[in-house]
């Protein structure tokens, strides 16, 4: 253990950094796209199901295949990895945003509108605050997925902790496999914990 850290310590840190960066970028993009899209879907009578099933289909593409498919478009490196992980992050966020917004009681919406809120005020002061915990739990779920799957990104040369694991597999070195896996697990747990805190923070006080 000490020996492993002495040998690979700096590498481990930089790979963890890479891993985190790829995951964060993918998740960030996912949030930017899926949250507004999910809100928009609740405003449309049709199309919600179509978009949701499309996102569902994207989710079923095997991770390896999706990564491989990115290569002809984006080449190798972190860009194709981020795009692929972004696609994976969409569904949980999209679905939770949609459900969260749908879950806002029609009475509240009616009252908000009837008292003279504009569309934007209804969104920002009533609906989004009330849907926030559900949206946030979707983001949290996506974050864990993305961190786990970012391991595969090393396969298309994006780096990250996956490099340890793939090297370990090729060289039959279990210490390398574990040295990559354990940080991934810890990272996923840590991020999940932190986002759980955020989820609680955005939750309306009386519901905590």
């Amino acid at each position: 253990m000490m020996h492993f850290l002495a040998t690979y310590g700096t590498q481990l840190l930089s790979k963890t950094g890479q891993h985190l960066l790829i995951s964060a970028a993918a998740l960030g993009l996912g949030v930017i796209v899926a949250v507004p899209l999910g809100i928009l879907l609740t405003r449309m009578k049709h199309g919600a199901n179509l978009v949701m099933s499309l996102a569902g289909v994207l989710q079923t593409i095997p991770a390896m295949a999706l990564l491989a498919m990115m290569i002809p478009i984006f080449g190798i490196g972190s860009t194709p990895a981020i795009v692929a992980l972004f696609i994976y992050s969409l569904l949980p966020i999209l679905r939770n945003t949609y459900l969260g917004m749908q879950g806002v009681s029609p009475t509240v919406r009616d009252a908000a509108k009837g008292m003279g809120m504009t569309w934007w005020q209804m969104m920002t002061r009533a609906e989004i605050p009330l849907a926030a915990p559900v949206i946030m739990s979707g983001i949290r779920l996506s974050a864990t997925y993305v961190i786990a799957w970012a391991t595969l990104a090393s396969y298309i040369g994006a780096g990250g902790l996956g490099d340890f694991i793939f090297n370990g597999l090729n060289l039959y070195r279990s210490d390398l496999i574990l040295g990559g896996s354990i940080p991934v697990i810890l990272l996923a747990l840590l991020v999940d914990y932190l986002l759980g805190k955020v989820e609680r923070a955005v939750m309306p006080k009386p519901l905590r």
């Binding site: 009475t107 509240v108 009252a111 908000a112 003279g116 605050p129 009330l130 309306p204 006080k205 519901l207």
Partner: peptide, 20 residues
């Protein structure tokens, strides 16, 4: 319509209070 609604009181069944 927004200005109009602000000038008229509105009470609905099940209160319509903002729970948050």
């Amino acid at each position: 319509p927004v200005k109009l609604r602000r000038s008229i009181g509105y009470v609905i069944q099940n209160t319509g209070l903002m729970p948050h």
